[in-house]
Every structure is written in C-alpha cells, then in structure tokens.
Design a protein around this nucleic acid. Structure first.
Lengths: 233, 233
DNA sequence: CGCCACATTGAAGGCAGTCAAAGGTGGTGG
DNA sequence: CCACCACCTTTGACTGCCTTCAATGTGGCG
C-alpha cells in the first residue's frame, strides 16, 4: 500500500513515516454495480481513492434528473472537499461497475497537512484542476448538444491516446450512452440524435461503443461552438 | 492594512510578522467602470481582494456571449486559483463600477504557505466554499429561467438582511438587469419576461431595482424547481 | 435638447425535453 | 440450450421554452 500511495502525485511529497501512518489509517471497501458510496448531503468525513472499477459523481437536479459531474477512473481521488471541517458532500457517488475504493479518514489527514506544507500544496493543486474542469463544464452548458458531444469525444480521444491524434483515431466509450448523456446535461434520446447528426455529417463513425473520428478538424470546430449546419468557406 | 487583513477569515491564522510581510508585498490598484482587471487565459500571478466597488468574474462562451460566474463585493477575494504554479486565469474579471483592489503576488504567498500549514487550511476552506457555490450554479442551469431568478432574489434577500426574511422584504438589485441575466445564463429579454411572470403571479413587486417579496413561500417553491403554473393543493 | 444605454414587449423560429414504441443485447434461470 | 426479462438504444411526433430580431419606451447625462 505504501508503494502504491507513493506513486500518486498528491502523496509524493510525504516521507516514509507519514506514508506508513497514512496507509495504516485507510480502509478498503468493495461496492457492487449501482451501489451508492455516499449521498449528497451526507456528513463528509474523508476522501476516496478509486483502485478498481468506475464511479460517477453526480447531483440530483431540482426536476429530479441526474446530472453527472465526473466519471472517476482507477488511480483518481475524489470527494477531496471532505478535508474541511463541518462539511457535507456536495454531490453523491455511485459505482457504475463493481469497484474498489480506499478511504482516507479526515482526522488523520489533517494531522499530516499540519506537518507537511508541501502536502497541502499538492492538495491545492488538485483543487485547481477541479476548478478548471468545473469551469469547462459550465461553458459546455451553453452549447448545443452536438457541440458538447464533440467536446467529450475529443477529450476522451486525447485521454486514451495522447499522442498522434489524427483522422481515423478510435475512441472507446467507457460508460454507456445514458451515462454520457447525464454528464453532458441531457438525456439519452437527445444524445442519440446528436450522435446521428455527427455521423450523418461525416465527422465520426459509430458502432456501439467504438467511435472512429473521420474529420478531426471539423469535429474541433463543432466542439468550439460552431453550429453543425454552418460551413465557413 | 495589517488590521484590515487580520479581519479576513483567510488571513486570521497568520501571526503579526507574516501579516506585516504580506501587507508589504501587496499593491493597490484603482480601476474605472468597465475596465478589465485581467482576461481569461492571462498568466495568473496572484490573487485579488476587492476593497471598494463591484467586480464581475465571467467567461466568454463559444457563441460569444458573456457568462458571469460571480459578482464580487467589497471584502471578498477572487482569482485564488492563481496560487498554483503555471496556471492561467480560468475566467476574466471586469469592474462594474469604479473599484479598488488589493493585489497579492503569488511568490510571496507561497512562502507564507510553506511556513504556515494553518494558512493553507484557510485557503483550502475557501476553495471548498467555492466548489459548493459552483455546484449550486450548475444545478441552477437545469432549471427554467423564472426558477433561477427566484433563487437569485432569495439569495440576495438573505445576503442583504440575514434576519427576519418575511413577506414584504425588500431587495435592491445591486447590478443592472442585463448583468443579472448574464449571471443567470440568459439574456435581458428573457429575464425581463421572467420578472413579469413572477410579478403577474403575485410573488414579487418590481419597481426598477427595488423588489418587494410578496409571497415568500411560493417564491421558495418556484426557486426549488416547481414550474410557475403548477399549484399543489 | 438629443444621444445612449437599459428595459420592455411582440412575433417567429428552433432546439431540446417528454412521451411512446420498437428493436437489440446480455444475463439469468429453468 | 433456450426462453424470458431487464436494460439500453434509437426513432417518431409533439410541445414548450428560450433565443433572435426588431421596435418602442425611458431615464440619465453631456
């Protein structure tokens, strides 16, 4: 466990002793597909590291729909907001597949923070990343659904193959389309139409969860907000 | 200046020496109405404290509209994201009136963070607050415009008179309606209709920037997502 | 007095959400 | 091994809200 933690950017500044102490306070939990890890409003008493599976972090909107905020992949931490006193989780977390998480109780972390200023810098850097992502999500909201989808596909493509992104690149959707719809702030029926539009315009090919990017340039254009009909000679 | 800083929650954990050092590194800047403080994407080299006036923090959406993220009031800090290395401002800031800000350069702050773990906890708490606020903003986005407006009016009412919020409460809009429209993710024409709907339903009275809340219970109901037509006997 | 920014209102069009139905797929249990 | 079922995906028809475009009103300020 100590070695595993050491690999993570957030913990890399800690010494051997602190790492060992940290490791000894954690607990591991397995959750089945569809099971809730915590609910929005629950008392927040620590944060999580996902070691296996896939988790979604989401809010329930006033009209009862689920709005997904992030999908968490193995190796990522989430719910860091729990590091602060008296707070509750601002969103819920639920597994999309059989998953395994490591839990870090708040009390022990705070002790370590107080002794390791560098560690707090690492946590703050994590926050900054989060802010940026949220910012992006907010911008996305004002765009049409096909634009958001194009943006999502490009982000996924980049994540899956950071090098050599070019026409013909393949993207595998790692969650089902209903979940993607929730992340993009829409519903599966509308997302389905958006996929159809990008396909009919010749930008992508779709076959279940396998997507092939056929026209990267125009896809980028759509993602940046250009309406699908518009061409700019 | 030292006394002024000490009042702020974020700085309250600092000792006299650090406060004095911090104060000596700051600079004050006056900006005219409409002037930009920084633009989205600028190199972020410090954060700001607003001492006078009013500032909006905003992004330009892909289709060219302004999306306001926050209005900053005197005594509030903003652009804290600048505390992290190699980052750029994720949004722009512009004054809505003649304003005065105090600038805290990053380099000096980082030194203080390293010596004062408690200080970093304060900054992190600030971030957590921010996350929550953003979270709220995201939820708001999925609601109809009259609901968002109702939520905004309630939040303003609460901010202006934390005690004794009841029917007959007065709210003064502190920015013009076009700016409010931008904060609520819409345009002035649509916001104008939303005001008219709340007025015609007998929930509020509107007279320029002075709003009177006539039916607090129903206004809360609308804000929480109930459609204006729906009644629940 | 006249300009300008802001606010309001009308008309029209479009995008997306809702409801509904049908086809496909994988998993489970008999 | 097959039948059934639950879930996902897609498509159609419809409705409603919001945006766009445009015109008019109004208050402040030079």
């Amino acid at each position: 466990m100590v070695d595993y933690l050491r690999q993570m950017p957030i913990f890399s500044a800690l010494g051997k002793d602190d790492l060992a102490r940290l490791a000894s306070t954690t607990s591991t939990r397995r959750i089945d597909k569809g099971e809730a890890l915590f609910h929005e409003g629950d008392e927040a008493d620590g944060f999580y590291l996902l070691t296996e599976g896939r988790i979604k972090v989401f809010k329930i909107t006033p009209d009862g729909r689920e709005q997904t905020l992030h999908f968490i992949s193995p190796g990522e931490t989430f719910a860091e907001v729990a590091l602060f006193s008296g707070s509750t989780y601002p969103a819920g977390a639920q597994s999309l597949e059989r998953s395994e998480v490591v839990f870090f109780p708040r009390a022990d972390l705070l002790e370590i923070v107080e002794k390791n200023p560098q560690f707090s810098l690492g946590i703050m850097a994590g926050f900054a990343r989060w802010v940026r992502q949220f910012n992006t999500l907010l911008s996305e909201y004002t765009k049409a659904v096909p634009s958001r989808l194009a943006g999502y596909l490009l982000a996924e493509a980049l994540r899956q193959q950071p090098t050599a992104l070019a026409d013909g690149a393949r993207v595998t959707l790692e969650v089902n389309k209903t979940e993607i719809a929730s992340l993009l702030g829409t519903i599966s029926a509308t997302l389905s139409r958006a996929f159809a539009q990008l396909r009919d315009a010749g930008l992508i090919e779709v076959s279940d969860r396998e997507i092939v990017i056929r026209d990267l340039a125009r896809l980028r254009d759509i993602a940046s907000g250009t309406a699908l009909g518009d061409s700019k000679h």
